[in-house]
Write a protein that binds this DNA or RNA. Sequence first.
DNA 1: ATTACATATGAACAGATGAGCATATGTTTG
DNA 2: CAAACATATGCTCATCTGTTCATATGTAAT
Lengths: 118, 118
Amino acid sequence: MSERVELCQEHHAHPEVLAHVKLDLPNEESLYDLAELFKVFGDSTRIRILYALFESELCVCDIAELLNMSQSAISHQLRVLKQARLVRNRREGKTIFYFLADDHVRTIIGQGMDHISE
Amino acid sequence: MSERVELCQEHHAHPEVLAHVKLDLPNEESLYDLAELFKVFGDSTRIRILYALFESELCVCDIAELLNMSQSAISHQLRVLKQARLVRNRREGKTIFYFLADDHVRTIIGQGMDHISE
DNA sequence: ATTACATATGAACAGATGAGCATATGTTTG
DNA sequence: CAAACATATGCTCATCTGTTCATATGTAAT
C-alpha cells in the first residue's frame, strides 16, 4: 500500500506510453467487478451448470442428478450464479427452474472455449 | 463420488431433454480447462496487468510501478498468465517484455465488461 | 394441521490461492 | 571475474472457496 517509486533504474517503455496506459486503466471498481465476474466462471461445477442451462431451463434436482452432485452443493452454486446475474429462476409449485439470464454467458464461454482449443 | 439416483421424486424436465443436455456437455477435461482459464481472469491484479498490456508491451518493473505492486507479486502473476497462454514475453538484454498472446484476451474481457455494465 | 417434497441456508472443515520475503538465476558492464 | 541490475522462484502465512452435514423455509396434498 506504500507509494512505490522507481522500481526500474531506467524505464523501458517511453514515459508517455506509461502515462497513456495509466490513463486508460478502468477505475478500480470496474476492475474489481470484472474480476469478480470471471471468478464465477472459474469453477468447473458452475461451468457445468451453465452449460447444462444452454439447452434448457432445469430444476435444481435435475441439475444435481445430471452433474452427479448433492442438491445442497448445486443450490449453493446456483446462488453464486444468481448473484452474478448469470442465471435467473422462476417457481412452479415446489419446483424452481433456473435458466440463463442473458446471452453474454454464451458468448463469454464460447470465447473461452475458442482460446483453449487454440 | 457415489452414484446418485433419483434425487427428484419425479423429473421436471422431460427425460429426453435431460438426455440431450447430458450428451451435449463437453468432456470433463474441456470443462476443467475452461474453468482454469476463467480462474486466471478472476483476479483483479491479473485483470489490471492484462488491461495494461492492451496498450503496449511492458517490462516487469514498469508493470509493477504502474500497478503500485512489488516486482515479486507481478512476476508471480505473469507466470500464471503465461501458463494460461494469455501473455508471452521476449527478452531484450536484462529486460523482459510481456505482451498479449492473442486477441481472445481482448474479446473475453470486452464481453465481461459488457456484462457488468448491463 | 400434518406430512412429504423441493429448495435454501448456516456452520465447519479441507484445500486452494495471492502476496511478502529471501534468495536464486540470468544478463550486461567494467 | 565481480558488481549491478532485471526477473524468477521457493517457502510461508493469512485469507478465500467449495463441499458436506444438519436444519430451515416454502409449497402442495391428504
